[in-house]
């Protein structure tokens, strides 16, 4: 088992939480894990990227080589496209379609979506909308993670356990909302895959 994952988004969108949840779940299953914050994780508003590698065998490189990523999980559509050179030909892109427009020259949204629709394997969902239905916009990152969960080759309940342990300090309501968000994302992808 091996999953090389690129996490992408804009600083402040909650990528670190996604990495922490997958990482915690992986370590709980005694998998090997390497995570590298490749680009400015603490910089608000800038593009951020994290490499996450999990495997049942020892991992060599901390960085994912070009063309080898199994999965790009992006909480923002333009950012999903930024790391395509790293995606393997069989790899999947799971992205939220909600743009984060904080630059004047942000490309036209239709064109961004056209590029995403050109990809051989992708799941595109409006994570903000699904998060809003649950009642907290803040869980949009977890919705996106849920949508990516069928591609992680990991038991779903391990991700749920990781959410419980990571958000425990924030109270039962936060934990439950995030569990719902994870499920909503997963359900979306399952509907797409088996219409």
């Amino acid at each position: 088992m091996k999953r090389d994952i690129i996490l992408a988004g804009v600083g402040g969108q909650g990528i670190i939480s996604i990495a922490a949840i997958i990482g915690t779940a992986a370590l709980e299953q005694d998998l090997f894990l390497k995570q590298s914050e490749v680009h400015g994780m603490c910089q608000r508003g800038g593009d951020v990227q994290s490499n996450l590698r999990i495997s049942d065998k020892e991992i060599a490189s901390d960085l994912i080589p070009y063309g080898k990523a199994d999965l790009i999980i992006s909480v923002e559509p333009l950012e999903a496209l930024r790391y395509l050179p790293f995606l393997s030909p069989d790899g999947w892109v799971v992205t939220s379609t909600k743009p984060y427009i904080n630059i004047p020259e942000y490309p036209e949204m239709d064109k961004v979506m056209d590029e995403i629709r050109k990809l051989p394997h992708y799941i595109a969902l409006d994570a903000d909308e699904l998060a809003k239905e649950i009642g907290t916009l803040k869980a949009a990152n977890i919705v996106t993670l849920g949508a990516a969960s069928p591609f992680l080759d990991m038991q779903f309940d391990k991700l749920e356990d990781a959410i419980c342990s990571i958000f425990r300090n924030k109270g039962a309501d936060v934990v439950n909302k995030n569990l719902q968000a994870l499920k909503a994302g997963k359900d979306f992808t399952e509907r797409q895959m088996n219409p």
Binding site: G45, G46, P65, G67, K68, R82, L84, N102, I103
Partner: peptide, 29 residues
């Protein structure tokens, strides 16, 4: 990075799909 090392050993670069031309930079703000 692993690719630079690969190329220095005479292996092929595994660069995947190109970044679409509409891409713009997003500096922190």
């Amino acid at each position: 990075n692993p690719n630079i090392v690969a190329v220095s050993l005479g292996m092929k670069n595994t660069y995947g799909m190109p970044v679409p031309s509409l891409m713009v930079g997003r500096p922190p703000s």
